[in-house]
Design a binder for these strands. Structure first.
Length: 369
DNA sequence: AACACGGGGCT
DNA sequence: AGCCCAGTGTT
């Protein structure tokens, strides 16, 4: 008897994350109506130009709206259409990306622009399947561009949507789990309407960004408050789960600060990996004797001991601890893993692609100059 | 499934 | 001091 009961109970638990057609329809109407009223005026919403939508979506990957806005404006001014971007030098694209992070995105954008021009005659591919083949365009971005720019009825599931829809369907599984992804995707397939699918997807993300926040959702203001399973269950029980992250390793580095006649010695990083393609004062891993030897082989002689000036730069997966050392280099040689070394006039630094870390190093070096 | 990949703002 | 953001690509 208890067996029968638990079997029924189990099926109910599984089924209640399924969104029925009638429930989907009500949900679509409510959230799009809310979006029409509450939508923020963002630069990339002033057009449905696929190129602009695409650029914005790439920039928005793992990056907040407020951070992206000025970069987007500058980028569109500098590269107004896909052909202009395809013609550009990668260094100019990286310069426009300097400080935004995840620099592989800039290389993907540039490579994809060239593909759009060469393979599609500068006309943007219109379907998720074609978009998906472009470098830097994954499942989310393909759905976002296809739905927003071309009206394809495709879901666009980002972190916001995982949380919002996870709560809406009363998902208990951790949002990072395969089970959660499957359930949210199924729900989204049922939810995305054939009419205005792009507005629906944007509405979902907008809701996550402004109302259904991770820690303190404003449920009374939510267009879905009446049918949200998460509210019924208590949001703490839904789509939660602590994500324990391993302690981030600390990496100790020495930066060789070499100045000669108003120019700074910069090294260019290899295209693959951290800060790919960007310039920076040459870095070598500590401890000091090893770094000194590494630099010496490249013709860079450290003056004294590194420090006391130093910079700590925090990344997602490691902390870079950089001590600064002045140095001289009359005939710099190659220095692994950098692709080249060159003196850059200080007046040219703002025109040189560099990471935020590299700019900090330069700024700290010449703070009192 | 886990990890590399930036930077910043909020709690 | 964590958390996590309009994620993607590699291993």
């Amino acid at each position: 008897m208890s067996g029968t009961h638990s079997r029924v109970r189990e099926r109910v638990d599984r089924d209640d994350t399924v969104v029925s057609p009638s429930r989907a329809k009500a949900a679509q109407k409510a959230i799009v109506a809310w979006f029409d009223r509450a939508r923020r005026d963002l630069p990339w919403r002033r057009t449905k130009d696929p190129y602009a939508v695409w650029v914005s979506e790439i920039m928005l990957q793992q990056t907040r709206v407020e951070t992206v806005i000025p970069y987007f404006e500058r980028f569109m001014g500098r590269f107004p259409d896909v052909e202009e971007l395809a013609r550009a030098d990668i260094a100019d694209v990286l310069l426009a990306w300097s400080g935004l992070g995840y620099y592989r995105r800039a290389r993907g954008l540039h490579a994809a622009a060239r593909e759009v021009v060469s393979r599609y005659g500068a006309k943007f591919p219109r379907t998720t399947d074609e978009l998906r083949t472009l470098p830097g365009v994954g499942e989310y971005t393909a759905g976002a561009v296809a739905s927003i720019a071309f009206g394809e009825r495709a879901p666009a599931i980002d972190g916001n949507v995982m949380r919002v829809v996870g709560r809406y369907i009363g998902l208990r599984a951790d949002v990072g789990s395969t089970e959660a992804k499957r359930a949210v995707r199924a729900a989204c397939e049922a939810l995305v309407p054939p009419v205005r699918p792009g507005d629906f997807n944007e509405a979902l993300m907008e809701l996550g960004a402004t109302v259904c926040s991770p820690t303190s959702p404003d449920c009374p203001s939510c267009p879905w408050r009446r049918s949200c399973r998460g509210v019924e269950l208590g949001l703490d029980a839904v789509a939660g789960g602590p994500k324990k992250r391993a302690a981030v390793p600390r990496v100790k580095l020495i930066a060789a600060i070499v100045e000669r006649e108003g120019a700074v010695l910069l090294a260019r990083r290899p295209l693959d990996g951290l800060f790919g393609g960007l310039g920076e004062p040459p870095l070598a891993e500590g401890p000091l004797p090893r770094a000194r030897t590494t630099f010496a082989r490249a013709g860079i002689e450290l003056h004294g001991k590194p420090g006391p000036r130093s910079v700590e730069h925090v990344l997602t997966h490691k902390v870079l601890e950089v001590k600064l050392a002045t140095a001289r280099a009359d005939a710099p040689q190659s220095l692994a893993p950098y692709t080249d070394l060159a003196y850059v006039p200080r007046s040219q630094l703002q025109a040189t692609p560099m990471s935020t870390l590299a700019r900090r190093l330069v700024r700290v070096s010449f703070a009192d100059a």
